[in-house]
Design a binder for these strands. Structure first.
Lengths: 144, 144
DNA sequence: CTAAACTCTATGGTAACTATAGAGTCAAGC
DNA sequence: GCTTGACTCTATAGTTACCATAGAGTTTAG
């Protein structure tokens, strides 16, 4: 039996072109496949991966998520949620909220760090020798 | 020949006590040794690492540097510089300056990310279904 | 038909550790 | 002297999201 679908010609691309279309590296794509974020539609006779345009979109979605620093595990969750259109999307909101919180925490940490580094930097007046360097002296003092 | 030093009794501690004294984990200490940041003064007959109080200070120095997020490679440099008391300390200043710059960059990146995440979060009004979730829709749209 | 360009899998490397296994060491109590 | 528990030893695998490489096979343009 030949289905209608099987007779429609679909443009399939190899991994290199998928990479160009999305701006991902070839290795990343293979990595996403291994991590089950992206499926390979099928293979050529010579075992090359072949992708359709839906996969291009899927990969763009992944790339967008990565640009927001979502982990592959989080993206996997989002993809799974996306496949349950009828469910409530509280889980999606929760994930984004917690991600925002983590980023905020990290920013605060780095801001503290920045303050400490500036103070450290101010403890040395550049034209000094290693022996008298305020930075090294400060680093040698046990902190609170 | 017996030197004066060899007859002075020095209190030596094993790795577990060094860990307690400094707040580092035992594994970290062994890791720092492997990375040549910390030398083991000597070993007991049973091959246990033994440390003196100078090593305690050295490790505190390392810990202080790590709390400022300096890499082990940077710390290794600082230690080397510290052993050349007569030299100018411009290199120390340069390292701290560049570190400050890197942290500033990272803060800016995270701030951008935070803005994007907030915008994303605002695209969904919580009580929605996955199908209508503004977050998932936004993530599916190709960005600039 | 050949050479360049592409793709395949498998493996090792990145940073700074943490965690584990399996074996040996040490100190105290009986 | 012996056991028991706490400690230590080395070596290895795992963490994260890839990148780099080797060695082999595939495809395509000229």
């Amino acid at each position: 039996m030949v289905t209608i679908e099987s007779s429609i010609k679909v443009r399939l691309v190899k991994i290199g072109e998928l990479a160009k279309l999305t701006g991902c590296s070839v290795q990343s794509i293979r990595h996403y496949e291994k991590e089950k974020l992206l499926a390979t539609l099928r293979r050529s006779d010579g075992n090359f991966r072949l992708y359709d345009s839906a996969t291009v979109d899927q990969l763009k979605f992944i790339k967008h998520c990565r640009s927001l620093d979502l982990s592959l595990a989080e993206i996997r969750q989002l993809i799974a949620l996306n496949q349950q259109p009828g469910m409530g999307c509280e889980d999606v909101n929760r994930m984004v909220d917690s991600h925002i919180e983590q980023v905020a925490l990290r920013i605060n940490e780095l801001q503290d760090l920045q303050d400490k580094l500036m103070a450290l930097r101010n403890s040395c007046a550049s034209q000094s020798t290693v022996k008298e360097c305020g930075i090294l002296q400060t680093l040698s003092v046990t902190q609170k």
